[in-house]
C-alpha cells in the first residue's frame, strides 16, 4: 500500500506552521470570496518537484487526517506523496470521486474527467471535491471573463495550458448548482479560486 517514507530526502513544510497556515488561509478566503482575485501563497516554500508552491501551501493549510486527497497518478509513489503524508498526515485515495481535495497538473487533466470528482450531495453539496489544478501561468493563456457572487462587475483571468474542453466540461457540471466542483488554479506561488458559482465566458463568445 503506502511506501515507507524516505526522511533523508524530505523537503520542509511551513517554517512557522501556525502563522503561515493562518496567512495562507486568509489569502484563500479572499480568493474564494472574490473569484478571479490573484493571491500569493507559499512563496517561501520549496516543495518537491512536480508540486508548485501555491498547491503545496493549500495542502499544508487545509489537508489533514480528516481529508481524503487524490493525487494525479503521475504524482503518486514518489517524493510528493511522502512529503504530503509526512506534513499533513492525510490519507490518499485512488478514487477521485471520494476525494475532498484533488491535485492535478494541467497535463494530467487530459486523462481525468472533471465529472469523475465528487460533485456533492443534494443535501450536502459541501462534500464536493476541491480540485487543485497546477498550471504554468495564470496570465499568459486565453482570456476569460468571470461573473457571479463575489465579483462586483466582471473579473478577468487568463490561465495557460488547460485542455480545450476544460471550461465547457466545468460549465456542464456547475450548471447543476448546488452540485459542482470548486477549482483552485495554481501557478508557482499565485492562486486563483473559481468556486462553482462563478460564471465563465471565454472572450469573444
Amino acid at each position: 500500500m503506502n511506501a515507507p517514507l524516505n526522511l533523508a530526502e524530505l523537503r520542509p513544510g511551513f517554517s512557522e506552521p501556525v502563522g503561515d497556515s493562518q496567512s495562507v488561509f486568509r489569502a484563500l478566503l479572499t480568493a474564494t470570496a472574490q473569484p478571479g482575485t490573484r493571491v500569493e501563497v507559499g512563496k517561501a516554500l520549496a516543495p518537491p518537484v512536480g508540486l508548485n508552491q501555491a498547491a503545496a501551501a493549500v495542502l499544508l493549510t487545509l489537508a489533514d487526517q480528516d481529508t481524503l486527497v487524490w493525487l494525479e497518478p503521475s504524482l503518486r509513489g514518489g517524493a510528493i506523496e511522502s512529503w504530503l503524508r509526512f506534513h499533513t498526515s492525510c490519507p490518499l485515495t485512488d478514487h477521485a470521486e471520494e476525494a475532498a481535495f484533488a491535485v492535478v497538473s494541467h497535463e494530467g487533466l487530459a486523462a481525468q474527467m472533471l465529472s469523475g470528482f465528487n460533485q456533492g450531495d443534494a443535501k450536502y453539496p459541501d462534500l464536493a471535491t476541491t480540485v487543485i489544478v497546477m498550471m504554468p501561468d495564470l496570465e499568459a493563456g486565453p482570456n476569460l471573463v468571470l461573473e457571479g457572487p463575489g465579483i462586483e462587475t466582471i473579473a478577468e483571468i487568463a490561465p495557460q495550458g488547460l485542455p480545450e474542453s476544460f471550461w465547457a466540461e466545468r460549465s456542464d457540471l456547475v450548471a447543476h448548482f448546488q452540485f459542482g466542483i470548486d477549482v483552485m488554479m495554481c501557478a508557482e506561488a499565485t492562486l486563483v479560486s473559481i468556486p462553482r458559482t462563478t460564471r465563465i465566458q471565454t472572450k469573444g463568445e
Partner: peptide, 23 residues
C-alpha cells in the same frame, strides 16, 4: 490547529455555496 483547519474548510465551502449551511 486541526480544529482551525476543519473550520477553515467549512468556511471555504460556505463561500462556494452562498447561503448553504455547512455542518
Amino acid at each position: 490547529e486541526q480544529t482551525k483547519r476543519m473550520i477553515r474548510r467549512a468556511i471555504l465551502k460556505a463561500l462556494a455555496i452562498p447561503g448553504y449551511q455547512v455542518p
